[in-house]
Every structure is written in structure tokens, then in C-alpha cells.
């Protein structure tokens, strides 16, 4: 197991190098730099050039690239051009917000997704199944930015129960944190439940047709025991796969939700950096996202072994 983890970690290094090279290529291909964000439309080329010099943007791209790799190898992601702090600090400040949002959404999406998917499977081709699948399809089809705005109008503007946006750190006030996370996490959850519910239903239907399930039923075990003890554990592998994909997707979805709910998370940081061409933050942020994806994949692979005894890593 340990050698498997080590091999996976080593194999992720070329992936990270590739991600950083592609990011540099994109930055080099896309015109514009932070000077245009500092200045208005009447700025003269001299003023732009002067500011570019002040901000250290007058170096050629290959020189910027070499010094970036040098710094990264010594554990330094560089300094943000606009944020007046190191890229690592900027990311670490925002990472807990994005991760807690994604984790909350994932937890509820998995919980309700598996529950609804299982219910649909055991009620196959009955009204319960069709209702659940219709709701799942609706959840999949609703754009998260639209749902977020509707929830704000209902729960923040009309009812006044929850804040319309903003973030309260959990270390300051747990209730405040829960209130600030409720609507964004619910928005993300609703749009992801459908995936898990549909996958669970399909996997459960496969398993429920297996001989061992029929045998368990024939032995006189209660059907709910059969479903929970025999069917569900065997349907978990494909559910786990789709959960891994969703975990990555949640980080992407969090970008939009963070924007709507005014949450200062990693997605908002990277979007802001792209729009203002804050190159070190784009580099560092995308590298961090790549690391998160790789870690999620690794965790999913390790969980396979945990839930399916047939899977062994040597």
C-alpha cells in the first residue's frame, strides 16, 4: 500500500510540471497584463510601460518562467502583483473556505444522493422511482448561479433568515459560519445530488439483480437488511468513482457559487487573478487546484481497496 502511494505521488510530479507549463503557455498566449487593470482607458503607452516596469512585468516570459520554477523548487510560489501578499498566503487564506464549502456540499450530496438513488432502485418503475429521477434531473438541469440568486431572494431578502452573502470564519463564530455556508452549500448540493442519485440507482439496479441478493431474499432476510447490508456495499464502487469526479466538479462549481454568494474562496481568487492578469496567483492557484485533484484521485483509489476487498495495491 505504501509503495503504491509513493508511486502515485511520484507519478504526479510530471502532471504538475505539465500543468505549470500549460499555464505559462496560456498566460503567454493571452494578451494583457495587470497594468491595464491599474489604469483607465486613457492611459498612454508610456504610462502603461512605466507601470509595467514598476510591477516587474517588463521581463521576458522565459525569464519569468525560470525564476518561477526556481522559487517553486524552494517552496515559494512568489508574490501576488495585486494582493500585496505571498501567493501561498493568499491561497492558504482562501483554501479553507472553498474546501469547507465543497466538503459540506459533497457530504450532503453523497448522503441524499445515495438515499434517493437507493429508494429509486428499490421502487424501480414505480411512481417513487420516477418522481425521484424527475427531481434528480431537475437538480442536474438548474444552473447553480440561478438557483443561488433565487435562494438569496427567498431566504435572505424575503424571509430574512440567512445572510445574502459573505463569510464568517468558523474560528470566530460557529453559528455565523453555518449561516454563511447554508445557502451556498445547499446550492452546490442540489446541483450535484442528481449525479449521485442516478449513479446509485443504476448501480443498485445491477446489484439487486444478482443471484446473491435473490439468495438473501430467499433466506427470509428482511428486504431493507438485504438492500443495506448486501446490495449497497457492492454498489459503492461506481458511486465512489462518480463521487471523486463530483468532488473535482464541486471545486469548479464553487467558483460560480463563491461569486454569487460573495465568498472569498479559492475560485474567486483565481477568477479575479485571471481577469486582472495576476500571473503569480494564476500559476499558484492552478497548481494548487491540480494538487487537490491529484489528492482526490489518490484518496478515491485508496478507498476502492477499503470498500472492495478484491482490490489490492502492491
Amino acid at each position: 500500500m505504501l509503495s503504491f502511494v509513493l508511486r502515485r505521488l511520484l507519478s504526479s510530479i510530471p502532471v504538475l510540471i505539465l500543468v505549470s507549463l500549460m499555464t505559462f503557455a496560456l498566460i503567454w498566449l493571452v494578451p494583457g497584463d495587470p497594468a491595464s487593470v491599474f489604469l483607465d482607458a486613457s492611459a498612454t503607452p508610456e504610462q502603461i510601460e512605466n507601470l509595467r516596469r514598476q510591477l516587474g512585468l517588463d521581463q521576458p516570459i522565459w525569464s519569468q518562467m525560470l525564476s518561477w520554477y526556481e522559487r517553486v523548487l524552494s517552496g515559494d510560489l512568489g508574490q501576488s502583483i495585486l494582493l500585496r501578499r505571498s501567493v501561498a498566503d493568499a491561497i492558504l487564506e482562501r483554501l479553507p473556505i472553498t474546501l469547507s464549502l465543497a466538503a459540506l456540499a459533497l457530504f450532503f450530496a453523497v448522503l441524499f444522493g445515495i438515499l434517493l438513488g437507493s429508494l429509486a432502485a428499490v421502487n424501480h418503475q414505480r411512481w417513487g422511482d420516477q418522481s425521484i429521477m424527475a427531481i434528480a434531473l431537475l437538480g442536474l438541469s438548474i444552473p447553480d448561479f440561478w438557483l443561488g440568486l433565487v435562494l438569496i431572494v427567498v431566504f435572505a431578502v424575503q424571509l430574512g433568515w440567512l445572510p445574502s452573502g459573505g463569510y464568517v470564519p468558523i474560528t470566530e463564530d460557529f453559528v455565523g459560519w453555518a449561516r454563511s455556508m447554508a445557502l451556498p452549500a445547499f446550492t452546490l448540493t442540489v446541483t450535484q445530488i442528481g449525479f449521485i442519485a442516478r449513479m446509485t440507482r443504476s448501480a443498485m439496479l445491477d446489484v439487486l439483480r444478482q443471484d446473491y441478493v435473490r439468495t438473501a431474499d430467499a433466506k427470509g432476510l428482511s428486504h431493507s437488511f438485504v438492500v443495506l447490508r448486501h446490495a449497497l456495499p457492492n454498489a459503492l464502487v461506481p458511486i465512489l468513482t462518480v463521487t471523486g469526479v463530483i468532488a473535482g466538479g464541486l471545486l469548479g462549481g464553487a467558483v460560480v457559487v463563491e461569486q454569487v454568494f460573495f465568498l472569498p474562496g479559492l475560485g474567486r481568487l483565481i477568477i479575479g487573478a485571471i481577469l486582472s492578469r495576476d500571473f503569480p496567483v494564476i500559476q499558484g492557484g492552478l497548481l494548487m487546484l491540480a494538487v487537490i485533484y491529484l489528492v482526490i484521485n489518490l484518496i478515491v483509489d485508496l478507498l476502492y481497496a477499503l470498500i472492495d476487498p478484491r482490490v489490492r495495491y502492491g
Binding site: 440568486l149 438569496i152 431572494v153 435572505a156 431578502v157 430574512g160 445572510p163 445574502s164 452573502g165 459573505g166 461569486q259 454569487v260 454568494f261 460573495f262
Partner: peptide, 10 residues
Amino acid sequence: SRVAALESGE
């Protein structure tokens, strides 16, 4: 979101 912040008193 800006309008919602106004209408919710934030």
C-alpha cells in the same frame, strides 16, 4: 447579489 445585499439590509 448587490441588489440582494441592499434589500436584505446588509
